[in-house]
Amino acid sequence: MRPSVQEMIAQSKGKKNKKALEKIIPVILFLIASVSVLTSIGIVLTLIFETITFFTRVPFFDFITGTTWLPFSNNEAQFGIWPLIIGTLKVTMVAIIVAVPIGISAAIYLSEYASENVRRVIKPILEILAGVPTIVYGFFALTFVTPVLQAVFPEIKIFNAISPGIVVGIMIIPMIASLSEDAMSSVPKSIREGALAMGSTKFEVAWKITIPAALSGIVASIVLAVSRAIGETMIVSLAAGSTPRFDGDFTGSIQTMTAYIVQVSKGDAGYGTTIYYSIYAVGFTLFLFTMAMNILAGYVSKRFREEY
């Protein structure tokens, strides 16, 4: 006769490997989960060690105060980071000028005005915009936006800060729009109804109630978008040029921190040269900028979150 199910269960209970498995699995999973921590540690250590090597050759003070970036000069190489920072900020500034008004307007439209059906169409399209590879945006900046700009403003050069700035702006619109929309949509419906019941127009509800209530989320979305713009690489590598400059000109070739790293990487600066180490110093500076922005975004959204 067949043993009962409970008997069969009792027999298999005795097996040792089952208990061992229950003990070892969490350990394995913990090790897997620590890979992300190791990655962060790896990034920080890599940047620190190679940057230290860089600073044994180029004085730290020269790097952080210098206003001339001239790495490829044979006898008079200069490594003052400011021209690259200025280049990065120029592109970021243009991007923010483009993306903030459009992104926030889209967020307001989606959260306050659009019907559920309209939202269901527009949001996925914005997601597509967010999913376009940056190399494609770079190509678009170089072969479309720059020529169009040149047709209107002949003084704009083939490489400039405006065209990649605009396209970086287009790239970060979905980020600002979707994060801001999330923040606005999380303002409870009952609060909106309270304002509407007093005779407010939708615009007044958005402007006086929803936006102030969601402000921390909106600001955080902008800060995160700034971080993305600072770290953006391919658009500026293709369309901004490779001329590190310490001035306020947006119409001519510039160079950003990211574009410099790419420029060196695709050249053949040999391993161990000062130029090789310089990309780590620049990378570290870039890392600090974006990290500061990310931490600021987290702080803003936690510290100034509205309670309701």
Partner: peptide, 25 residues
């Protein structure tokens, strides 16, 4: 909570910096 915070920070690191990590490691 450190692991969680670390994951969200890692998501904000520019891809070019991951390139530097890959190059070194």
């Amino acid at each position: 909570s450190f692991i969680r915070m670390n994951i969200s920070n890692l998501a904000g690191v520019p891809s070019v910096v991951f390139g530097l990590l890959g190059l070194t490691i």
